[in-house]
Amino acid sequence: MMQLKTRYNLLHLFYWFAYCCISGFIAIFLQYLGLSNTEIGIVTGISCISTIFISPFISSLVDRIKNLTIKKLTVYITVGVGIVYLILSFIKMPAFMAMILYILMYALMLSTVPLLTMIAMNYINDGLYVNFGLARGIGSASWAASAFVFGQVISFVDPWILSIGYFFFIALALILLYTMPEQKNVKTTKEKQGSVLQVIKNYKILFFLLLGFCFMFAGATTIGTYLINIVTNLGGNTSLYGVCMFFMAFSELPVITMAPRLMKRFNSVTLIVLASVFYLLRNFTVCLAPNLIILIIGMMFQGLSYGLFTGVITYYVTYNLDAKDQLAGQTLIGIMTSGIGSTLGNVLGGILQDTFGLDYMFMFIYIVTITGALIIFTTKKINDRVEERN
């Protein structure tokens, strides 16, 4: 049988290929259902803000329900998401009903990301070798490949094909997940698990780093969700959209893979500051791009911005938080990014675009990106002073 490390790597490969079928084509699929940019922003915004409540609730179910493990919970949610996606693709319904179902589907899918991370961290705590950085990097490459492949496919076939792609690849991921060993440390401790609010109270540096990232992620989410509109505004189409998404996601692979090595040589907070600098470069380059070539170059800063931050912050939580706070810490990452950050970017991005046009949406991206960078720079200075005192 394959080594655990190999199986976990392949789990990410198939999971992120399936995940892209939803997250990589949000605007295209919802436009196919007849929604406007404002309605798309409302749908994705509510989905993302829902994760603030859904993610902690789902995480708590593992402790509250007997015989429920993270693995089983991941299976139930991802299968449920697939069923809703098929319903949206093949059953005609009123727009408001489609919006409700998509909100449910997308919110549940977002909530599975912390679970996948915790599977790795539990194995590491059990003394089993799993390279999360490599696995997550493979996931980024897989997401990139999925974006490219389905970007070409939906140039010829309607977006309903995305639901079939999701179901096929998530089935492969779940088969691999089923073959992986149960985790020894799950539910073996009587110590009460920490809450998200306790993590915010006890780890203020982590919270403010995530707060800064939240604002920068809002700008990046606006770009990601409405990238198809940016591409078409520069003369491109869905095929070129897939190419842009491919280069964006593939750039994450080397950076996320190298995150553990970088953390051995450099301070974690310093690396996060570096990631925020590249976020400035990424978002400004994309918004100011005069043509598709410059746009693609801007998207390729994704690895040194999002990729670096994600890799570092995940390990930061693992190595700096108490064991009882691990799950809540990983959940907080999702809340601040996929929850608050994505909501801010999706809702305001859609409204500004429909009401005033792309230029005003770009102005919003400039403001939130600069705000996030300033918060992180300030947090770094405070952290340095704290370390000097200690």
Rank of each mutant, 00 (worst) to 15 (best):
V269K: 00
L206D: 02
C214D: 00
L262A: 05
K264T: 15
R261G: 10
T222G: 14
G212P: 09
L271W: 10
F250Q: 00
M245K: 01
K204M: 00
V231P: 15
A218K: 05
P254T: 02
M263F: 14
G219T: 14
P260A: 11
A220W: 12
A220F: 15
G219M: 04
I272N: 04
T222E: 13
V243D: 13
L211T: 14
T270V: 14
T238V: 15
I228K: 09
Y226I: 13
K204T: 06
F246H: 03
N229G: 01
V243T: 10
L240H: 06
N229S: 12
F250A: 10
G212F: 01
L206P: 04
M248A: 05
S268N: 08
I205Y: 05
Y241W: 06
C244M: 11
F247D: 06
F266L: 15
A249H: 01
N202D: 11
T270R: 11
Y203C: 12
M263L: 12
L253Q: 09
A249N: 06
I272C: 03
R261L: 11
I256C: 06
S239G: 05
A220T: 10
C214P: 05
V231Q: 06
C244L: 01
L262C: 01
S268L: 06
M258L: 15
L211F: 04
N202F: 14
S268A: 15
T232C: 09
V255N: 03
G236D: 10
